[in-house]
Simulated assay, not measured.
Amino acid sequence: MALNEVHISSLVVHVAPEHLNTIKAKIEEFENAEIYGDSPEGKIIVVLETENQGFVTDTIDAINNLPNVLSTVLVYHQIETGVDDTDIDTGIQHSYTEGEV
């Protein structure tokens, strides 16, 4: 059985307001990033779901290095550990547990 680790992080990305839509499109190209909101002042809320902390820092660096990004700040970081591959399966394991109750 393989144990997995999931890192959930949120970022605030500050961009020059006139480049908001361009930067949002660039961020959406990242496989592990999802935009949860933005403001006309040029702030974008981004949530990352990655397999390890290295992917988190790499993605932050990549976003921060986009043209017209003023700053990228990590606001929240949670690590979920011990996620078993069988938890993602068809639920057969759960039926055994229910039967034992």
Rank of each mutant, 00 (worst) to 15 (best):
M1W: 11
M1G: 15
L3S: 15
N4F: 08
E5Q: 15
E5A: 13
V6T: 06
S9Q: 00
S9C: 15
S9W: 04
S10E: 09
S10H: 01
L11Y: 11
V12Y: 11
V12C: 08
V13N: 04
V13D: 01
V13L: 02
V13I: 10
V13G: 11
V13P: 13
V13A: 03
H14G: 07
A16Q: 13
P17D: 01
P17R: 06
P17M: 05
P17T: 00
E18V: 02
E18K: 08
H19R: 01
H19W: 11
H19I: 03
H19G: 05
T22I: 09
T22E: 08
T22N: 08
I23T: 01
I23L: 07
K24C: 10
K24R: 03
K24N: 00
A25I: 04
A25M: 08
K26R: 06
K26M: 07
E28H: 05
F30R: 03
E31Q: 01
E31A: 08
E31V: 09
N32L: 08
N32V: 07
N32G: 01
N32Y: 07
E34F: 08
E34C: 09
E34I: 02
E34D: 14
I35N: 02
I35Y: 00
G37T: 03
G37P: 09
D38G: 04
D38S: 15
P40C: 01
E41F: 13
G42W: 07
K43E: 09
K43D: 10
I45F: 13
L48A: 11
E49R: 11
T50E: 09
T50A: 12
T50W: 04
T50I: 02
E51Q: 15
E51R: 11
Q53V: 10
G54E: 04
G54V: 02
F55N: 10
V56D: 03
T57E: 04
T57N: 12
D58L: 14
T59Q: 02
T59F: 06
I60H: 00
D61Q: 12
I63Y: 04
I63Q: 07
N64F: 13
N65C: 03
N65K: 00
L66W: 07
L66G: 01
P67F: 00
N68E: 06
N68R: 05
V69K: 01
V69N: 02
S71N: 05
S71F: 05
T72F: 04
V73H: 07
V75R: 02
V75Y: 04
Y76S: 06
Q78N: 13
Q78P: 12
I79A: 08
I79H: 03
E80A: 01
E80M: 02
E80S: 01
E80C: 04
T81W: 03
G82F: 06
D84E: 14
D84V: 03
D85E: 04
T86M: 13
T86I: 12
I88P: 07
I88D: 04
D89T: 06
D89M: 08
D89E: 10
T90M: 05
T90L: 11
G91I: 02
G91T: 01
I92K: 09
I92Y: 08
I92N: 06
I92T: 03
Q93C: 15
Q93H: 13
Q93W: 15
S95I: 14
S95W: 11
S95E: 14
Y96T: 06
Y96E: 12
T97N: 13
E98G: 12
G99V: 00
E100G: 10
V101L: 12
V101P: 07
V101Y: 14
